[in-house]
């Protein structure tokens, strides 16, 4: 009797959560999978037309812009932002660990992470402005010609990546700092007694012991980068010029909500989702071998 009461209680407490996931997660995923096999403008359900694999064939065909440049850009964006934010965060978290007022410094680096992307995107747009922006102010001040960062297809993607990498530093610093704190002080003390210098200690103690944290940061921020599109939306609206900054989730968003191709957009969402899922599983495997059991 006691056990059945506990079961009833548990499911009563869980019912709002389970109902929510049914309506806003399970049904949507199935619905979205169904839409991806139809031709639909998102209006009434009767106007849905079953087209089988047509949408998938279309976006995966060599002529489509989805594989290239859109998915290529998605990977470049994820790679670039992770490279910038991870390398910076590794250095920053190490140097902060040697200072006083660590909380203050970490907060400063974290400020972009608690700011709306609309602000981040617009401020970087202003800094990139070819006529009155800060960065071109410095470039022309040094005697070079000003660069049209976001209107030039050769520079646009890199310009968005730099902003995105800058934005990601703070959260990586937070996680890496937590990892650094978990390394016992006496390891360093013992190394100092043996005469190891700071550089030697970092390479022989810090990096090996930090490896699970490093893998965690790399993988979560890479997956985050593959999904990200808000910054690109704010800075370039539609992934322009041309498709030079366009990424998968943004193309999906515009196909659905700018052009009303809900079928194509849903197919794109699933292709991107499956790609991310495969990458996640591969990385989980690397994780396990890299010594993170609990992830």
């Amino acid at each position: 009797m006691r056990i059945r009461k506990e079961t009833a209680l548990a499911y009563t407490f869980l019912s709002p959560v389970l109902l929510f996931y049914a309506i806003f997660l399970v049904i949507p995923v199935l619905f979205s999978l169904f839409i991806s096999f139809t031709d639909w403008g998102g209006f009434d359900l009767e106007s849905m037309e079953w087209v089988g694999l047509k949408n998938y064939r279309k976006i995966l065909s060599p002529e489509s812009n989805f594989l290239h440049p859109v998915l290529t850009n998605t990977f470049l964006y994820a790679f670039g932002t992770v490279a910038i934010s991870f390398c910076s965060a590794l250095a920053v978290s190490f140097f902060i660990s040697r200072l006083r007022f660590q909380g203050l410094w970490r907060t400063l680096y974290f400020l972009p992470s608690v700011t709306t992307i609309v602000a981040i995107g617009n401020v970087w747009l202003y800094m990139y402005n070819p006529t009155n922006g800060l960065i071109n102010g410095i470039i022309t001040g040094l005697g070079f010609r000003s660069v049209n960062f976001l209107d030039d297809p050769h520079h646009a993607l890199l310009s968005v990546i730099v902003a995105g990498g800058w934005l990601g530093i703070g959260s990586s610093v937070l996680i890496l700092s937590a990892g650094l704190k978990a390394i016992p002080d006496n390891y360093y003390e013992a190394a100092s007694l043996e005469g190891a210098g700071a550089m030697r200690q970092y390479i022989s103690i810090t990096l090996p012991l930090l490896r699970p944290t490093i893998l965690f940061v790399l993988i979560t921020s890479f997956i985050g980068g593959l999904q990200s599109f808000t910054l690109t939306l704010v800075m370039t609206k539609n992934g322009g010029p041309g498709d030079s900054t366009n990424v998968g989730a943004l193309e999906m968003y515009n196909q659905a909500f700018s052009f009303g191709n809900w079928g194509i957009a849903s197919a794109m969402a699933f292709v991107l989702f499956v790609a991310i899922l495969i990458i996640t599983l591969v990385q989980l495997f690397i994780f396990r071998r890299g010594g993170v059991e609990s992830y």
Binding site: I23, L25, P28, F31, S32, A249, F257, A269, F273, T280
Partner: peptide
């Protein structure tokens, strides 16, 4: 619930908009 965290946000804009 752990698995729900693996679903990316972009997957839900279209169906949840309709719902």
């Amino acid at each position: 619930i752990l698995a729900t965290m693996m679903f990316p946000a972009f997957l839900f804009f279209i169906p949840n908009y309709y719902i």
